[in-house]
Amino acid sequence: MAAQIKEPAEKLYKILSEEYRVYQELQRLGNKKQEALIENELEDLAEIVEAETELMDNVDNLEAARLQLIESISTNLDQSAEELSFNQLLPELPEAKKAEFSELRDKLLELIEDLNALNESNRQLLMEALKFNEFSMKAVIGTENQQTYENPGKAGKNNKSNRIINRQA
């Protein structure tokens, strides 16, 4: 490894390792979120979302540090940071580091793919829960033209006062 990128590359590996750990925690929370959505545990869901927000702030900080290191490494390799890819960095690393970086990269990519699938599943569960809640509210409140009881003498008139919950309240 070129001496000028040795230290930044080691720091980069540590940052990527920490990102992997944070993404694992996000995946654990995503699984808990899925259970909370299925069980309709709103308090648990609120706590999970709060914990996820904190972890995402951590990811943002790690990403900023990673981008700063990529900038430093790219400068040392006389390349632009935007164009520096993993495949361009890999040949600059010693064999032992190549294997470590490749393994970590593969694990990160797989975890992120799994996390995206879990998030999509949770998004769909949330959408279904919202639809169910909307349906429930309409059933309780009624619609503007819906009658809960029709007096035979007042057929055709809208009898809003018979709703379970008055929309104007």
Rank of each mutant, 00 (worst) to 15 (best):
V22K: 01
Q24N: 13
Q24G: 11
E25C: 01
E25Y: 02
L26G: 07
Q27T: 07
L29N: 03
G30H: 03
G30K: 00
G30L: 03
G30T: 03
N31C: 11
K33L: 07
K33C: 09
Q34K: 15
E35V: 14
E35C: 06
A36H: 00
A36K: 01
A36I: 06
A36T: 04
L37W: 02
I38C: 05
I38H: 05
E39I: 09
E39G: 04
N40S: 14
N40I: 11
N40G: 07
E41H: 03
E41A: 02
L42N: 04
L42E: 07
E43W: 00
E43T: 12
E43L: 11
D44N: 05
L45S: 01
L45H: 06
A46H: 02
A46Q: 08
E47W: 06
E47A: 10
I48N: 03
V49H: 07
A51I: 08
E52N: 09
E52K: 10
E52P: 12
E54M: 12
M56T: 12
M56P: 07
M56S: 13
M56E: 15
D57P: 03
D57R: 14
D57Q: 14
N58C: 03
N58I: 01
N58T: 12
V59S: 05
V59T: 08
V59W: 01
D60K: 12
D60Q: 10
N61R: 13
L62F: 01
L62V: 00
L62S: 05
E63A: 06
E63G: 03
E63K: 13
A64M: 01
A65I: 00
L67C: 04
L67Q: 14
L67A: 02
Q68P: 04
Q68D: 13
L69P: 07
L69S: 04
I70L: 12
E71I: 01
E71S: 09
S72M: 04
S72V: 08
I73R: 08
S74I: 09
S74G: 04
S74Q: 05
S74H: 00
T75E: 10
N76S: 14
N76G: 15
L77C: 09
L77D: 01
D78W: 01
Q79G: 02
Q79F: 06
Q79P: 07
A81Q: 05
A81T: 01
A81R: 04
E82D: 15
E83A: 15
E83F: 00
L84V: 09
S85G: 08
S85N: 02
F86M: 13
F86N: 06
F86I: 11
N87K: 11
N87V: 06
N87F: 02
N87C: 04
N87T: 13
Q88W: 08
Q88N: 10
L89Y: 02
L89N: 03
L89W: 00
L90Q: 05
P91V: 08
L93E: 03
L93N: 04
L93R: 06
P94N: 10
E95V: 14
A96C: 06
A96I: 09
A96T: 15
K97Q: 14
K98H: 07
K98P: 03
K98A: 09
A99C: 04
A99V: 15
A99L: 14
E100H: 06
F101E: 00
F101S: 09
S102K: 15
E103Y: 07
L104C: 05
D106V: 01
D106F: 00
